[in-house]
Simulated scan of single mutants.
Amino acid sequence: MSVVYLTRRDPSRNLARFYRMLMAPTLFGEWALIREWGRIGSGGTVRADPYPNAGAALLAMQALVREKKKRGYVMKTAEPV
């Protein structure tokens, strides 16, 4: 299971956001890209998108990481508990 955790902070705009993604196999032999996003410190919105294989899910995750970095998100090495 691969997990990516991104954050975006801007104190002048009272902005503190997170975006978390992970890949997991489904019960039907597919792979799911599970995404959660929202304000840091609160529960977020969760979405799971199915993909036919792990490679397709990984490509989708990489595309989302690039998109989020363009919007000012930075990757964190460890997810807070």
Score class of each variant (00 low, 15 high):
Ala56Glu: 15
Trp31Cys: 00
Pro50Ser: 06
Thr26Glu: 00
Tyr5Ser: 04
Val74Phe: 08
Ser12Thr: 12
Ile40Thr: 15
Thr77Leu: 10
Ser2Gly: 03
Pro52Asn: 10
Leu59Pro: 10
Tyr5Gln: 09
Ala24Phe: 04
Ala48Trp: 13
Leu58Cys: 06
Arg13Gln: 14
Ser2Arg: 12
Leu58Glu: 03
Arg66Asn: 03
Glu30Ser: 15
Arg8Pro: 10
Asn14Trp: 06
Met61Leu: 12
Pro50Gly: 01
Ala63Phe: 01
Pro50Ala: 10
Gly72Cys: 13
Tyr73Leu: 10
Ala57Cys: 05
Phe28Glu: 04
Arg35Ile: 03
Ser2Asp: 03
Arg66Tyr: 11
Thr26Cys: 02
Lys76Tyr: 11
Ser42Val: 15
Trp31Phe: 08
Arg47Thr: 06
Ala54Arg: 11
Ala78Arg: 07
Ala60Arg: 02
Tyr51Asn: 11
Leu15Ser: 09
Ala60Thr: 08
Gly38Met: 10
Glu79Asp: 10
Pro25Phe: 04
Leu15Arg: 11
Thr77Tyr: 04
Gly41Leu: 03
Ala56Asn: 13
Gln62Tyr: 10
Lys70Gln: 00
Ala57Glu: 02
Tyr73Met: 05
Arg47Leu: 04
Phe28Tyr: 12
Gly38Arg: 06
Leu64Glu: 14
Glu79Pro: 05
Leu33Thr: 02
Val65Asp: 04
Glu36Gln: 11
Arg39Gly: 14
Met75Val: 06
Ser42Arg: 15
Pro11Trp: 14
Tyr73Phe: 15
Thr45Val: 03
Glu79Lys: 12
Ala32Asp: 02
Glu30Phe: 03
Lys69Ile: 02
Val65Pro: 01
Gly44Val: 12
Ala16Pro: 03
Leu64Asp: 11
Tyr73Gly: 08
Lys76Arg: 15
Gly72Trp: 10
Ala48His: 12
